[in-house]
């Protein structure tokens, strides 16, 4: 039997190592920093179509994450999606006529809200609504439009060819 001091020392090292691994897993591997509850103000925006936007999707301005989507609801009267997002307190100076659009990171990546500043003198504050919005690009619609366009053009050039002959 080993001396009990040695055993205690080893168990101490063991527990410390285990805790350190858990700590490393939660700090380094996961997104604990990004989702820490931040102090901020909530603004809402209505979109015709939010595509694959999710709660906690990033809200970016000029590519910098300034907030996160807080809640997604549905407006029964206008049949639009109501997205409320929490903007961090340090970004107070967003003009009232800021535009919100839904973009996709990469071709198939996650969706996020992109804000573009307007020229208004007044700033967004708690509870204000972003009036100017642009819906998500739905890939199927895009492909549909593209194919339709192509077919249309082919038909036109076909009749043009016949006409010239």
């Amino acid at each position: 039997m080993m001396h009990s001091r040695t055993i205690q020392l080893w168990v101490g090292i063991f527990v410390a190592l285990g805790m350190a691994s858990l700590f490393m897993l939660s700090m380094k591997v996961s997104n604990i920093n990004a989702f820490r509850a931040v102090e901020g103000f909530t603004v809402t925006a209505k979109f015709e179509n939010i595509g694959g936007l999710k709660v906690r999707s990033p809200v970016k301005m000029a590519g910098v994450v300034v907030g996160r989507v807080d809640d997604i609801g549905f407006d029964n009267d206008s049949y639009e999606a109501v997205v409320s997002m929490k903007i961090e307190d340090k970004y107070q100076h967003m003009p009232l006529d800021t535009t919100a659009s839904i973009f996709t990171a990469g071709l198939l990546g996650e969706q996020y809200i992109g804000l573009e500043p307007g020229g208004e003198e007044q700033y967004l504050k708690e509870g204000s609504e972003i009036k100017l919005t642009q819906s998500a690009m739905v890939l199927e619609n895009l492909i549909g439009t593209f194919l339709f366009d192509k077919a249309d053009k082919a038909e036109k050039s076909g009749t043009a060819d016949k006409g010239s002959k």
Binding site: L17, M19, M24, L25
Partner: peptide, 9 residues
């Protein structure tokens, strides 16, 4: 659980 955390890390 401590061993599993170390394994993952």
């Amino acid at each position: 659980p401590l061993l599993a955390a170390m394994f993952s890390a």
